[in-house]
Design a protein around this nucleic acid. Structure first.
Length: 745
DNA sequence: TCTCTCACTTC
DNA sequence: TGAAGTGAGAG
């Protein structure tokens, strides 16, 4: 980090205050120097009880300490710095050499994503965390080879709805539950040079999805309340907390910064890939998705039909059972047809399930669910046309509310995310704005902080346009909010969101402003749970977490041990502090310059509180604005004061996020602007579903049938009854091919 | 719906 | 060899 105490110190020079310092300290290479210290300390480690407090002129104390908070990696207990401590700029105002960059991002394995997307991607979330599959991988280009970048990923709510899987498709089932605490995943290789990033596929496969609200794998950065992308405290970690049966959209961010601590000051370029949208589930709902996962995820090989997987064995086992059953049955009937016992066994199934005995696998199943079958058929045929066809079908903006069995429904179901009128996408605005232009020339979505971010100051020319766009976005919230999110990527190039998406970060005016006003950075080192730069950083800075209390008392930083004692001295043990509500903890700790426990006990979100707060917040204000931090920058602070995280904004019905489309969006036009209508009507916006999913379906059937293995009975009646029962079940299975599990007795 | 265990896989 | 990632299936 440039705010480093490892840099050589120029002795004898005193630090000059610079007006930009509070906001762009990371641009400085600073060193904290004790009067008696040698001018050079590679990794400044001061004795815990070195001397007196850091002595600085009043006007300087606060801004400098703000930066020292960011310098926490040094582990210096600032409270014990010597009386002669000085801060000296090493490279005062020397602008870094910057090469103009124009990052472009391409989603890897787009075809796979498309396959999933068109069926309605589901991602399993578990208590312990489950990886995404397909894994989120991107390839970057257009970066400045020399510059360092931090790459991040997060997952935001795609809309304001709760979903259910009904009639083989996802339907809106009501309003979304309160949002889970926001998490951001920083690629463990961050920061790295543009050259490094561009030389490889950037994969985020280690990110895990969980529904475990008490997950503590995270640390918190406080962002300025008016940060264009994030506001308030944002939690980082390897696990993203999601709500089951809700739709989500992963996002990818590129930040040109050489240090994590600069994030709050840095410019974010954000990219969306609509095909990566998914619904979080605790158990797969759509068997097609299950099958796709099994077919493509190496870890699920054991469930594949081919090879020595369990499926195969189970199938054989079932077959055997059926054979035995059949033999007994025939014996009791006084007949015997040994030569075709296996066939007979299948015939039992076939007869029960469909007249079309020989085509159980596919066609008759399609007939049982024509709509979906038709979709799939279209999708498959599309796929056969190769990548171009896939690209052309990237945007899926239509939704049919017709029932599944309606064969005549238009073949424009890009996927199985069906949105009912109540479904209101949250994150629409910026994407629409970004769509036409950003396809080929992504622009910076947002700059960093109140005042001007470091990047902006450094190169106003470069950032100016982006900044003004952001400002424009803020100035015209309504316009932004009502624009549909229907932009498509160009040949797997990402959308570049040209503005902050709602639903991210915390409500403006919350912690970042409310409790950390003037202190944009608040880091909880104990919550680091990441590798690479983070773990090293965490290791380095673990002991120190300094927060500054207003303009009052300069600074007090505490290492872990010092913190404990200080906390005790102030009558605030870690345990008791941990029981405080989230904002109070922060408030107290900030105002008392207390750091949280380095190992997660103190600062982790009090999730129960948060949930309650969110619920209250949600209930108190159901207006769309309430869920849109960017639409209410100037109005919602008081109401959101106690909400530890923002609630995404629902946008008007007419807007559509990604695939949560509206029936005849173009026709319904309504408030939709021309772009949206055009998108909806354009060929590229129509994803054609298709598919002969013979493998999928047949395996599904056979898989399902396993549980139906007949129980052998000695009595003929019992056997007959059993058989009939099986037949009924199989029949039921075929009638509901996508939810065979539910047909189990 | 969710959670847990299981057998199977990859790495 | 064992940790960790899979979906199935039972409860």
């Amino acid at each position: 980090m440039s705010l480093s105490m490892r840099d050589p110190v120029i002795p004898g020079t005193s630090m000059a205050y610079h007006p930009f310092l509070p906001h762009r300290a990371p641009d400085f290479a600073m060193s904290a120097v004790l009067g008696h210290q040698p001018p050079f300390f590679p990794a400044l480690t001061l004795p815990p009880n070195g001397a007196a407090a850091l002595s600085l002129p009043g006007a300087l104390a606060k801004p400098i300490m703000d930066q020292l908070v960011g310098a926490a990696e040094t582990g210096i207990p600032f409270s014990s710095l010597g009386p002669q401590a000085h801060l000296r700029p090493l490279k005062t105002m020397e602008p870094e050499e910057e090469v103009e960059d124009d990052p472009k991002v391409h989603l890897e394995a787009k075809e796979l994503w498309d396959q999933f997307h068109k069926r309605g991607t589901e991602m399993v979330i578990t208590k312990s965390g489950r990886r995404m599959f397909p894994p989120f991988k991107v390839r970057c280009s257009g970066l400045d080879k020399k510059a360092k970048y931090i790459l991040l990923m997060d997952i935001i709510a795609a809309d304001d709805c709760r979903y259910k899987f009904h009639n083989s498709r996802w339907m809106v089932a009501g309003k979304a539950d309160p949002e889970m605490p926001k998490r951001m995943y920083i690629h463990p290789d961050s920061p790295a040079t543009g050259e490094q990033w561009m030389s490889k596929v950037v994969t985020f496969h280690k990110l895990k999805l969980t529904n475990n609200i008490s997950d503590k794998h995270g640390f918190t950065l406080a962002f300025p309340s008016d940060h264009a992308t994030w506001q308030g405290n944002y939690s980082f970690g390897t696990q993203t907390i999601l709500n089951s049966m809700h739709k989500y959209q992963p996002r990818f961010h590129i930040v040109r910064a050489n240090d994590i601590l600069k994030l709050p000051y840095s410019t974010f370029r954000t990219y969306l890939f609509p095909e990566t949208e998914f619904i979080a589930v605790t158990a797969y709902q759509n068997d097609k998705i299950t099958q796709l996962k099994i077919d493509n995820n190496p870890f699920a090989k054991g469930f594949r039909d081919t090879g020595n997987g369990r499926r195969e064995k189970r199938k054989q086992l079932t077959l055997q059972s059926m054979r035995v059953f059949d033999e007994r049955h025939k014996k009791e009937n006084g007949t015997s047809d040994e030569s075709s016992s296996e066939q007979a066994a299948f015939n039992c199934f076939a007869q029960a399930s469909s007249p079309a005995v020989s085509t159980v696998g596919t066609s008759n199943l399609k007939d049982l669910c024509p709509s979906e079958g038709e979709s799939d058929a279209e999708a498959e045929s599309k796929e056969e046309h190769g990548p171009e066809a896939c690209d052309a079908a990237k945007i899926t903006t239509t939704t049919s509310e017709e029932p599944c069995r309606d064969k005549s429904s238009p073949a424009v179901k890009g996927h199985l995310f069906a949105a009912e009128p109540g479904g209101r996408p949250r994150d629409t605005g910026r994407l629409d704005k970004a769509s036409p232009d950003s396809r080929h020339s992504p622009a910076t979505i947002s700059s960093s902080t109140r005042g001007l971010g470091a990047e902006e100051r450094r190169s106003p020319g470069r950032e100016g346009a982006a900044t003004s766009k952001v400002e424009e976005a803020r100035a015209l919230p309504g316009k932004e909010a009502f624009a549909p999110l229907t932009v498509q990527t160009d040949a797997a190039a990402a959308h570049l969101a040209q503005g902050p998406l709602p639903g991210l970060g915390f409500a403006p005016g919350l912690a970042g402003q409310q409790f950390f006003n003037g202190h944009p950075l608040f880091l909880h080192p104990g919550q680091f749970a990441m590798g690479g730069a983070f773990s090293s950083m965490a290791a380095g800075m673990g002991p120190l977490l300094a927060t500054v209390s207003g303009a009052s008392t300069g600074v007090s930083g505490l290492d872990s041990t010092a913190m404990a004692s200080a906390a005790a001295a102030q009558g605030l043990s870690g345990a008791s502090a941990a029981t405080l509500p989230f904002h109070l903890q922060q408030h107290v700790l900030a105002s008392q310059s207390l750091a949280m426990s380095p190992f997660g006990s103190l600062f982790p979100y009090p999730y129960t509180y948060m949930a309650a707060a969110a619920a209250a917040s949600s209930a108190a204000a159901s207006s769309s604005v309430h869920r849109h931090p960017f639409l209410n920058l100037n109005t919602m602070r008081p109401r959101l004061r106690y909400s530890p995280y923002s609630i995404p904004v629902p946008v008007p019905d007419s807007s559509s996020l990604l695939t949560t489309a509206l029936p005849s969006m173009a026709a319904a036009a309504g408030p939709l602007d021309g772009k949206a209508a055009a998108l909806a009507a354009s060929p590229a916006s129509v994803a054609v579903d298709s598919g002969s999913e013979l493998n999928s379906r047949s395996s599904t059937l056979s898989s399902s049938s396993v549980s139906l293995s007949p129980k052998l009975c000695s009595e003929k009646e019992a056997a007959t009854s059993e058989l009939q029962s099986i037949q009924r079940l199989v029949s039921g299975l075929e009638a509901k091919p996508d939810r065979s599990r539910s047909t189990s007795p």
